[in-house]
Design a protein around this nucleic acid. Sequence first.
DNA 1: AGCACGATTAACT
DNA 2: GTTAATCGTGCTC
Length: 192
Amino acid sequence: MSNPLPVSFYERPTVQVAREILGARLVCDLNGERITGIITEAEAYVGETDLGCHAKAGRTKRTEGMYGPAGRAYIYFTYGMHWMLCVVTEVEGFPAAVLIRAVEVEEGWSVVRQRRGNVKSKDLTNGPAKLTQAFGLDIHQHKLDLTKKTSQLWIEPAETILDENVTIGQRVGLYSVPEPWKSMPWRFLVNR
DNA sequence: AGCACGATTAACT
DNA sequence: GTTAATCGTGCTC
């Protein structure tokens, strides 16, 4: 057991946070059910000028969480059926966040299995909407402080991932986003 | 008040 | 590889 990653970890360039959050442990403690997993994939979304980022629309009810203090959860709904989990980064007032795209389950396997149904074990949490479903996250966890264990959800340091084990690529699913944003190498994933 | 769209997934062929 | 499912959000009228 270690202390959660501090606010200072998140108050740095978003792309750097996305790279360094790989190997950290996502801990969820809802209703006494403890679920943990190692983060294996993350993407950076940086500011109003990044047309792949929700903040391109400016400060709205939906995006205001991204303008808040670093280290908070930014959870939103998309495709009419999926919740996504992000962590707010950089200084308060600058809209940026890291999208958690995949984790590797450690504890709470039985609960995850129950929620995710009878899928192959590799498919349990290898997508952004899959992991929120597996961890039972939705709008109720929006804006939770992920730097405190008193929250139901936090992130703590765990494994160190070497550069040679990290694949860098462009972000996924930004079909209608114009260049150069569409091709920014802001996706980081741990080699399997 | 109404509408187009989407940081996805699962179930097809 | 293709596509339907499904609804909160933000923009337009």
